[in-house]
Write a protein that binds this DNA or RNA. Structure first.
Length: 251
DNA sequence: TGCCAGGTCTATA
DNA sequence: TATAGACATGGC
């Protein structure tokens, strides 16, 4: 296993925002450590003559940036990226575990499932009618991909794949340096005064990419760290003024 | 009971 | 180009 912590405390400044973007990263990394995204599911078989599969979360792999190891894990990340749209990860895990329990968390498995069975399996993740159709689309696309790395535009052309999902797939399933901007990211940088509610996705993405080394590992960690930080300080019922980053950015 | 969660698409102006 | 409404479950 490769254990790397990418610290950005050194390096030369190039833009006004670069020190801020890097300072935030270093603070988050020092605070929470390596996050080990993207979480992967693993099923454990119970013993006996009639083994049953129980879902559990293998979860995170801090400091190990070698994942995905297999096409199966790569496809699992792709499915998770789509299923997590506007839904909590806990619900996505349930859906993924349901699919694994029926040996269908694979492109062929998804395509072989009847529409009703697929809908029932992913029901916990919400929007199950839409997402069932979109999973089939992703499965067909993945089979035709044949281990090639897709272009971002190609992903965006798929039904149900918007900018965040495309970037998540590129960054975590294909290890491409494409920064992911999610609702948490937007909330944090808005509160820090680095953007506002109307700032476009592409502009926020550029803010990070232009002020960081083009490094897949840094992008993965940064996005995951922002999510972890947001879960602590940026839940909607929390006053964002408690965010410790404010003292750092405004200093 | 109502709000919220690791978005995206479509119709309309 | 911008915005509203639809899509849906489960935790708190």
């Amino acid at each position: 296993m490769r254990k790397i912590i990418h610290d950005l405390s050194s390096g030369t400044s190039q833009t006004v925002n670069e020190p801020v973007i890097r300072t935030i990263y270093n603070f988050l990394l020092n605070s929470y450590g390596s996050q080990g995204w993207w979480p992967l599911i693993e099923l454990h078989e119970s013993g006996g003559t009639n083994p049953t599969k129980t879902g559990s979360v293998q979860g995170y792999h801090p400091g190990d940036y070698t994942y995905p190891h297999t096409d199966s894990q790569q496809f699992e990340i792709i499915c998770g990226a789509m299923l997590t749209q506007n839904t909590s990860w806990q619900q996505v895990e349930r859906a993924l575990i349901n699919l694994k329990k029926i040996d269908s968390l694979s492109p062929g498995g998804i395509l072989d499932l009847g529409p009703e069975t697929l809908r029932e399996a992913i029901r916990p993740a919400g929007y199950y009618n839409q997402k069932a159709v979109r999973l089939k689309t992703l499965a067909e696309w993945f089979l035709e991909l044949k281990s090639r790395t897709p272009e971002r535009e190609e992903l965006l052309s798929l039904k149900g794949v918007g900018p965040e999902t495309a970037d998540s797939i590129l960054l975590y399933a294909f290890k491409q340096p494409s920064f992911v901007v999610d609702a948490y990211t937007r909330r944090i940088i808005s509160n820090l005064g680095l953007a506002d509610e109307k700032t476009k996705y592409s502009e926020i993405k550029a803010l990070f990419e232009e002020n960081l080394p083009e490094d897949m590992i840094v992008y993965q960690e940064y996005h995951a760290l922002l999510v972890e930080h947001a879960k602590r300080y940026y839940q909607k019922k929390i006053n964002y003024s408690r965010c410790p980053l404010l003292k750092i950015v405004l200093a």
